[in-house]
Amino acid sequence: MITTSALQVRYGDTTALHPLDLDLPAGRIYGVLGRNGAGKTTLLSTLAGFRKPSAGTVTFDGVPVFDDARATTRICLIRDDGGLGDGTDTLRDILALAAMLRPGFDSVYATELMDRFALPRKRTLRTLSRGQRSAFGIVVGLASRADLTMFDEAHLGMDAPSRQLFHDELLRDYVRHPRTVLLSTHLIEEQSPLFEQVLILHQGRLLLREDVDDLRTRGVSVTGPQAVVDDFVFGLTVLGERQLGPTKEVTLFGALDEEHRTLARRYGLQLGPVALQELFIHLTGGAA
């Protein structure tokens, strides 16, 4: 279990992460969503001990994460920047390095993944394409078999088939070696089926944390004549609205009770589900 208490991160005058209390029980796959600059990378970096909290604590099974080998050897954060080795190192050397530094590293599995992603072992890190570098990060991240494995947009630059391979391997290895996984992503539609829970960050705060399947029921769109819709949504949580001529569509947050459903039927209003991505857009301030 990873626990933060009053965790706060500041860069000079700007607060990247406002005080955050979070418990993430082990053995689940969490999605971390948020717009650019919402604090995703800051949060993951701090959870991994890459960065020291400005205030508050992060512990992993009770052990402080910052600079304590009992915790850090069990944590792996893969970022999109290829920071796994020197640019002049070959992939083979970096894998050998990881095997020396990581207690649980599985070199056989790493080799298997290298083949699957068709990565050239003798090439150096700096000569890889963006997508290849991301794929290599995923190889290291999965083969590290860390109890807490985090991918911070580790799929950047990967084409659709490679991403699919990533998702397949992630699930396959997660089932064989259960662990806690955090994935930060903008690919909501594509990756949300992988998650059990989502954390939505917005402007350095945790906006929402929920089972992703529950979240899929949380949005309702109401469509009908403007005046009727306005009446109907009075007192409900309105996330956004659009108008086309006399017709209005309003996106509501929170499941509708039976009374409202009956009412909607009587007034001839159309109720519809809201896709996760759309809900996310509305929750984080709309498409501004």
Binding site: G49, D67, A69, T72, G83, L101
Partner: peptide, 16 residues
């Protein structure tokens, strides 16, 4: 410094 960053990325500590 680069070496340290690599070590930390692979789960080692600054102390080590």
């Amino acid at each position: 410094a680069g070496l340290l960053a690599t070590m930390v990325s692979h789960g080692r500590t600054r102390r080590e």
